[in-house]
Design a protein around this nucleic acid. Structure first.
Lengths: 209, 209
DNA sequence: GACTGTGAAGCCATTCACAGCT
DNA sequence: AGCTGTGAATGGCTTCACAGTC
């Protein structure tokens, strides 16, 4: 039951703070001020404090924040104190890169399953995961308790795959296809459109000159 | 010389509109209203009109927009009416996926060069691009007239690679490493942090329940 | 009648500035 | 003295609503 609405930008920054705090922790730093964090990640110190204030009072006035303690708080806020089981649909270039990407496992995302329709890809191994046919989608979601589905298929197949994921019981979808997906309100959806990023660069190159 | 500041969100949406218009064009649709676009991409019709209004009056009252004409306008606004030469630094999982990704070439991004430091990767082929050693960075940027650099190396190497790219004359950087990069003001920088996206999902899964 | 273009209003996020604590 | 936590002020994006045009 959500009481306050948290800005999405705040959540994204928390994720960034957590990585910076992790790094500080490894360097043996014990205490950090909002100003230090701000400098490290490129935002204002007031922003850091406001972001944290949504979730409680974690610091000590006159001193700052204890690195490890704040890190643990943020990890908990982000839901990274638990494992999430993930299925990737689409084992093309992008899907397989995501499946092999180390960064996810480090943060508690457990990629358990990778599916594809292509006969030539099915049966091949990505790390220690064998690519399986799309037909097992529902079975695997259920038996492997998968909550997050990653859509890495061509635009034309994206909505169909999404519908299947939702029907199977997935609670959240990360969409890498350049297609606007329709999902029920209770399913969490995020879109990552790689082309958009390059195009914003291109725009700025032209516009700021 | 920029006169009005354009919201970044507007630029991102323009990129999305352009793909939707392209699709409409292929389906043979000739005219489209702001309401149609809005429905197709999941925003409000006023938003569509406001976004377009930053750049001129492209529509006809009572009628709407001509699909092809509007598409061409947006392509020009985004700077996609020209070719951009791109270098990818880092040919690991992510770097090679990006190098092989078809979506970029379709939009005028010409990936000319891929570099890495790993002896085992140098010399291998990604499509028809051969991975070259980091040492040729500056030479290639200059001789191939590269304006956009993609940073797909581990966090620890990211700032160093960035500095080299900028020194060589790159004008824009797309950063996939989870590290905040320092660049001079005149260099355009965008960050794509894949973990952040999964973590926002995770947050919402925990928070909305 | 339909739809664009746009000033005005509304809303949300960021920044400011300071009281309060250590 | 230093730094957090936070109400108030600011700034910026989105939505509203309607005049203008076809």
């Amino acid at each position: 039951m959500k009481v306050f609405k948290i800005p999405e930008a705040t959540v994204m920054r928390l994720s960034v703070y957590s990585r910076y705090l992790y790094q500080l922790g490894r360097e043996g730093v014990e205490t950090v001020s909002s100003g230090d964090i701000a400098k490290g990640v490129g935002v204002s110190s007031a922003q850091v404090r406001k972001d944290l204030a949504y979730f409680g009072e974690f610091g000590t006035r006159g001193v700052g924040y204890k690195v490890e303690e704040l890190y643990n708080h943020i990890i908990k806020i982000l839901g990274l104190d638990q494992q999430w089981n993930v299925m990737i649909v689409g084992a093309g270039k992008l899907g397989s890169a995501l499946a092999l990407y180390q960064g996810f496992a480090e943060r508690g995302f457990n990629i358990t399953t990778v599916l594809d329709v292509d006969e030539n890809i099915i049966g091949t191994k990505l790390g220690n995961i064998e690519v399986e046919p799309l037909e097992v989608l529902e079975t695997r979601v259920k038996e492997r308790n998968i909550t997050i589905g990653v859509v890495a298929v061509p635009a034309s197949a994206a909505q169909d795959v999404t519908d299947q994921l939702i029907k199977a019981g997935v609670k959240a979808i990360l969409n890498f296809s350049p297609r606007v997906l329709k999902v029920p309100r209770e399913v969490v959806l995020r879109n990552v459109d790689l082309s958009v990023n390059l195009e914003v660069l291109s725009f700025n190159l032209v516009f700021n000159s």
